[in-house]
Design a protein around this nucleic acid. Structure first.
Length: 372
DNA sequence: TCGTATT
């Protein structure tokens, strides 16, 4: 059935009340996976609030470093909102990630430590092959075969089923229950898959919470931005952005983590945009850059703006301006992005973009009430 | 040849 990690998990027993208690499967609590590293809890809340009223929202962070672990939970008040969130937000591309939205299983000790690392796989083994190999031992939550160019794959195919990248011969299988994983190790470790000559190794995967390999060099926090190559959070003394013009040589690399998110740089492409945005009292309101989007269709909803701007970087909030009577979009909206450079790229990319049969106008928000 | 999936 499912051939990639983007799909909502299929309940192999149809979700009916079989052996294991189908008791308190929450219909409102969602787990969100593959979140962009920079996405904050409030940005997640904002995104999911575009569907319906959120009861609670939690981004899971590393207890030591505070870094996002790339997943979180969103609990709605209403089950129908949770279902709608899955239908509309699962598979949404944000920055270089494709998020996954699915129902959270009830938390328990039995589901922890159920992730397996598999190596020695034949290079031609597909994700589906891998699932077929492991599925006799339990319900598979996720599976993945590592490829050399996963980034390219996600951008080109949107995380599709085929894997143009070359398999590295290693992968992961996450089972629903730890006992299922244990049994898979016993039965499959050291065995030779059909059509292969090499035995596979099956073992428990490293636990990402207690590894020490992800700590960036201390120097990354101490040296000037020129030497920064790591995406970790910079704790600016002011706790907020400071305007630091750099040379106009900066280039933006959307696919790497090399965008310095805590300094504003002049971009040779963006001089006039910057000039506009720096008008008094406008785009930068102290927490992000407000972008004006014009010529939206009457039926536009918030998720459209998320879809449009999300791929360009951190989006804090979106707003569709509606007529109070008809509840239809009045033709414009606003998007607030955290980082100046990402906002510039979004504007340059989306201004003039044809959405439906409408040509969008996208710019930094200006203080047009004064009609200066 | 180790990804960011259980509060």
């Amino acid at each position: 059935m499912m051939a990639n990690g983007m799909d909502t998990v299929v309940q192999q027993n149809g979700g009916s009340n079989l052996g294991q208690s189908s008791q308190e499967e929450s219909k409102t609590n969602l787990i969100v996976n593959y979140l962009p590293q920079t996405m904050t809890q409030e940005e997640i809340r904002s995104l999911f609030s575009s569907i319906g009223e959120v009861e609670s929202c939690k981004l899971i962070r590393d207890k030591l470093t505070g870094q996002s672990l790339g997943y979180g939970f969103v609990n709605y008040h209403r089950p129908e909102d949770a279902e709608k969130a899955i239908n509309t937000l699962n598979g949404l591309r944000l920055q270089n990630k494709t998020i996954k939205v699915s129902y959270a299983r009830p938390s328990s000790e039995a589901i922890k430590g159920a992730n397996l690392y598999v190596s020695g796989l034949p290079k031609n083994m597909t994700q589906q092959d891998l699932e077929n190999l492991f599925s006799p031992f339990g319900r598979i939550i996720t599976s993945r075969i590592l490829c050399d160019n996963i980034t390219v794959r996600q951008f080109v195919t949107g995380g599709g089923d085929n894997l143009p990248g070359l398999s590295k011969g290693v992968g992961f299988i996450r089972f629903d229950q730890r006992v299922e994983a244990e049994r898979a190790i016993q039965e499959l470790n050291g065995t030779i898959p059909k059509g292969s000559t090499e035995p596979i190794t099956v073992k428990f995967a490293n636990n990402p919470s207690n590894n020490n390999k992800a700590i960036p060099p201390l120097a990354a926090y101490l040296t000037p931005q020129a030497t920064r190559r790591f995406g970790g959070p910079i704790h600016h003394p002011t706790g907020r952005f400071r305007y630091i013009p750099l040379s106009p040589l900066s280039r933006i690399n959307l696919t790497s983590g090399e965008l310095n998110k805590n300094c504003f740089r002049y971009s040779p492409l963006a001089g006039d945009l910057l000039a506009n945005s720096m008008l008094p009292g406008n785009a930068m309101n102290g927490s992000g850059w407000c972008i004006f989007v014009y010529n939206l269709a009457p039926e536009t909803e918030e998720n459209v703006l998320w879809q449009l701007f999300g791929p360009f970087g951190a989006v804090q909030s979106v707003k569709v301006i509606r007529d109070l009577q008809t509840n239809k979009c009045k033709g414009f909206g606003f998007v607030t992005m955290t980082n100046y450079e990402e906002a510039v790229v979004a504007i340059q990319s989306l201004n003039g973009y044809t959405l439906g049969n409408r040509v969008l106008q996208v710019s930094f928000k200006t203080n047009k009430s004064k009609a200066a």
